[in-house]
Design a protein around this nucleic acid. Structure first.
Lengths: 120, 120
DNA sequence: TTGACACTTTCCGATATAGGCATATGATGT
DNA sequence: ACATCATATGCCTATATCGGAAAGTGTCAA
């Protein structure tokens, strides 16, 4: 097995820096492909490919306007990611750097004691 | 070029589901490798490899205790990721679903009007 | 030293990625 | 129909992944 497809979820899709940059540019509103490509200094085909990935995970939408294709942000797919990260917020927003580790250790010790071997 | 290394950032490191699950388990405190492997139903070598990746991007720390190696969370590396996502918060936390798109369109239109053709 | 335990690393294969370049598709204008 | 502009797709290569199986390192106990 190789790495999970970039199109398998938002996590994988945004792992690529250029894709992230596209999303940031799109915060400013819809943009045609060429403008995105220029703005990020990449070839047009490459931009298209990245946009395809973002489209497949539904982080962007397309709209045809004449010959152009306007890509727009659909950030809803980022919400679960943001929420997942939120679960870690408490670990950097305070005491959790040294002092609390103590408590962790204690909890850890108790966990170890019962020597059950299974739990949930 | 292939995909960026999983060890190149937190973004890439957490793209893998199992790695994310490890981090979640670690929220409950330090854990030895075998327990993580069991908890996630993966082989112990596989767990070790994932932990290596997480260690390289500094999302976890190790500590030896006898024969065991206790892995602990170091969530600070997730903060930039969380912050990056925060930039998109406004796009799902309100009106930005249909109505505001309008405004976007207008801004977009003005952007297009100057009909420059080349920027830099 | 020997053995058992906890973990790490190496070797292997299958897969799919990012990017370059060429080409195909599709809409517009004449 | 044809040329042109704006995008998309196909083909190619190098690379690195995840996973399994096996072998290596390091610690403790007798």
């Amino acid at each position: 097995m190789a790495r999970a497809a970039t199109t398998s979820d938002a996590f994988n899709a945004i792992a690529e820096r250029q894709r992230r940059e596209i999303l940031v540019l799109l915060q400013g509103g819809e943009r045609p492909v060429a403008e995105l490509a220029r703005g990020l200094g990449m070839s047009q085909p490459q931009a298209s490919k990245h946009l395809r990935v973002l489209r497949e995970v539904e982080l962007v939408r397309v709209r045809r306007v004449g010959k152009q294709r306007l890509y727009g942000l659909d950030a809803r797919g980022l919400r679960p990611v943001h929420e997942w990260l939120g679960g870690f917020e408490r670990f950097w927003s305070g005491s959790f750097d040294r002092l609390d580790e103590y408590v962790q250790d204690l909890k850890q010790a108790r966990r170890e004691e019962p020597s059950d071997g299974d739990g949930q």
